[in-house]
């Protein structure tokens, strides 16, 4: 299915077990790989991500399982935002 990037902004994200994750604020794209690298999410459900003082998280696009009227991602255990950031950095290297 082909969609326009702007249609993702503001969409709600749930896990495939029906748990609310947050709202898409922005999409991170990798110009060289010509693909979406992650979804920047705000309004995060604190039961899913422990944000600490951070405002949002970037969810790797490979977690996304479906995009329709809402976005579904693989179910995740409660994670710490800091850890996600480290994973993101690792992939960059």
């Amino acid at each position: 299915m082909e969609i326009e990037l702007s249609s993702l902004y503001g969409q709600d994200i749930y896990t495939d077990r029906g748990v609310y994750v947050g709202k898409i604020e922005d999409v991170s794209v990798d110009i060289r790989e010509k693909r979406i690298s992650g979804l920047a999410v705000k309004n995060i459900n604190p039961n899913v991500f422990d944000l600490g003082k951070k405002r949002g998280v970037v969810i790797p696009y490979r977690w996304v399982t479906a995009i329709g009227d809402i976005v579904l991602i693989k179910h995740v255990r409660r994670r710490v935002a800091e850890k996600e950031k480290d994973e993101e950095e690792e992939r960059r290297e």
Binding site: E2, V29, R35
Partner: peptide, 28 residues
């Protein structure tokens, strides 16, 4: 890696320097 929001409304030029317009959206 760049924010897609920041891409929108950027000027698009071709490699000959001709102005094409501004980016409205990206299809994925």
């Amino acid at each position: 890696k760049i924010s897609a929001q920041k891409l929108t409304d950027k000027l698009v030029m071709d490699s000959e320097g001709t102005e094409m317009g501004v980016l409205h959206n990206v299809v994925v």
